[in-house]
Computed example of a mutant assay.
Amino acid sequence: MAEKDIQKHIYISGRVQGVGFRAFCRSTARTLGIKGWVRNLRDGRVELVIQGQPAKVEKMVENVKEGPSFARVEDIEIKNEECEDFRKFEIRL
C-alpha cells in the first residue's frame, strides 16, 4: 500500500533570489514527482509549498537546503500542512 501524500510549506532565506532558485525547485520537483509551487517574496525570501510521498518530500527538503550552486541558504522554516489538490509543480509570480 502506498504511503499517503504529505504537504510542507517552506520559507527559505539567504541569497535565494536572482540565482535560479525557483527554476532549481521546479526541476527538482519534476524529477522527484513533487507537486506544489514556488515564488519569490518581496522581503527577499522564497516561499515553497511541496506535496508528495513522504520520502520524496524529505528528499526535496534536503535539496532545497542546499539550493542551486549560486544560492546561499541561511535559514529555512518548515510547517506541515493539510494536503491541497495540486496537479503539478509551478513557479508563481
Rank of each mutant, 00 (worst) to 15 (best):
M1V: 02
L48Y: 02
L32G: 00
N63D: 04
I34M: 08
V19A: 10
P68F: 07
A29D: 00
N40G: 11
V46M: 10
G36D: 11
E74C: 07
K8L: 08
Q51I: 11
E66N: 14
N80S: 15
K8G: 05
Q53G: 03
T31V: 12
K59R: 09
G52L: 00
K35I: 00
Y11F: 13
V49E: 09
E47I: 08
I12V: 15
V38G: 05
G44R: 03
P54N: 02
R26V: 03
F24D: 05
K56E: 10
Q7I: 06
V57D: 06
K79A: 03
E77M: 09
V46D: 12
A2D: 07
W37V: 02
R39F: 09
L32F: 02
G36K: 10
E84F: 09
I34S: 05
S27T: 07
V46P: 12
E74M: 11
K56R: 14
V73F: 05
A29R: 06
F21L: 04
N80I: 08
M1S: 09
L41M: 15
M60V: 15
H9M: 08
E77R: 12
D43W: 09
G18W: 06
Q51V: 11
R26H: 06
T31W: 10
R22S: 00
F21P: 00
A55F: 12
S13H: 07
R22C: 03
R30K: 15
G44N: 06
G18C: 06
G18N: 03
R30D: 15
K8Y: 07
I76V: 14
A55W: 08
G67W: 10
Q7H: 13
P68H: 10
E58P: 02
W37H: 10
L93P: 13
L48E: 01
C83G: 12
D85C: 07
E77L: 13
P68G: 11
R26S: 06
N80L: 09
